[in-house]
Amino acid sequence: MKTVIFGENNSDTIILLHGGGLSWWGYREAAQILSKQYRVVLPILDGHAGSDKDFTSIEDTATEVITYIDENFGGRVKLLGGLSLGGQVALEMLAQRGDICENAVIESALVIPSKMTAALLPSSLKMSYGLIQKEWFARKQFAALRIPEEFFEDYFRDTKEITLKNMTAFLTANQQYELKSSVKDTSARVYVFAGGKEMKSVKRSAEMINKAVKGSSIEVLDGMYHGEFSMKYAERYADKIIDICGGK
């Protein structure tokens, strides 16, 4: 697993897992702020540009990150966070190893499977994949995702490097993921966030996670779209993490 690390000499570790089709750079601003107090590890999820292996499943990716924590940080980190696909991986980690972190921040993670969308994805991606190399098409997708403009060059460069096989695999897995019942046994303090302007299924998923994990908290962020909390409002996101972790 490839990683980008900020604040490497700090003792307490935070791991943040990016969304599908994005990469570590989505957390760049937040990581720069957090690195003043914490070691911030940004893994590049399997199947994405710069990764060292193909994507197989959310479950396998979760196991891989757990192994990384075991080998490098004694089996537990201060905080684990994730956006969308990364949020699903984080939830799966909590289900596989309930004590993997002290705190967990789950942003916009879908846990209501959509069989129809998952079934249609392979054929629709196959038809549109060639357009990914075109900047005009990338800009349309980018605008639809409401990602801040400063990320476009990173987004366009990395999206072109994702193979059709991997893109199909992780986007399909994203639509198929279902919350595991064992997540209820986690000892982590879990904080669930969703944007007020997100799809209903994402907001309903946030409610399901909150209900499943005893003692967790939920916040629907007024006026925010998918992924905007960590990417567009990075300072606010970092401040929330510092507050959760008891930092200054």
Rank of each mutant, 00 (worst) to 15 (best):
I66P: 07
F142I: 10
K126T: 15
E64H: 12
L110Y: 05
E198R: 08
D52H: 13
I112E: 11
I132K: 13
S84A: 10
T117I: 04
E107S: 04
A206S: 11
P113S: 12
G195L: 15
V77R: 09
S217N: 01
F156R: 03
R76E: 09
F193D: 11
G86S: 05
A206H: 04
T3S: 05
K184P: 08
E71P: 13
E71M: 14
T3D: 07
K78L: 12
L110C: 11
V105W: 04
I147V: 14
L42F: 01
E161P: 03
G195F: 08
P148T: 07
K126Y: 04
F142L: 09
V202E: 04
D99A: 13
E161I: 05
L22G: 03
I209C: 02
Y68P: 02
K140F: 07
E219F: 00
M93T: 04
L42R: 07
F142H: 00
W136F: 13
K53E: 09
L17H: 06
K36D: 10
Y225E: 12
A95D: 06
C245T: 05
A118C: 06
K211N: 13
V220S: 02
R157N: 11
G246A: 11
G86F: 08
Q88F: 06
L91G: 07
N103P: 05
L171D: 01
G7N: 14
Q175R: 11
E198D: 14
V183F: 10
S123I: 08
K2V: 13
Q88Y: 04
M167I: 13
V220C: 09
G82V: 08
M1Q: 02
L83H: 07
G227M: 12
I147Y: 04
Y155W: 10
A206I: 14
H48K: 05
G50S: 06
R139Y: 11
I242D: 00
G81F: 11
T61P: 08
V4T: 15
S230F: 00
T13P: 14
L80S: 08
Q175Y: 15
S84H: 07
R28H: 02
Q96Y: 02
Q96M: 14
I162K: 12
R28I: 05
S205F: 09
V4L: 04
T186F: 10
H48E: 00
D52M: 01
L85F: 10
G223I: 08
L17C: 06
I15G: 12
E150S: 06
P43F: 13
L45F: 15
S205Y: 12
G81L: 07
T3H: 11
G196R: 15
K53C: 07
T13M: 09
Y237F: 11
K140P: 00
K160W: 03
Y27S: 01
L171N: 14
L17Q: 03
A212H: 02
K134M: 09
S182R: 10
F152T: 14
I100Y: 08
R76D: 03
A138L: 09
T186A: 09
N72A: 14
Q175M: 13
D99Q: 12
A62Y: 08
S11R: 15
L34N: 01
G81R: 15
Q175A: 12
V111P: 01
E64Y: 10
I100C: 07
V190I: 14
G130W: 06
L94Q: 13
F151Y: 15
E107Q: 04
F156P: 00
S23Y: 04
L34S: 02
G26Q: 15
V65Y: 07
R204I: 06
L91F: 08
E149A: 15
E92V: 10
T186M: 08
R28D: 06
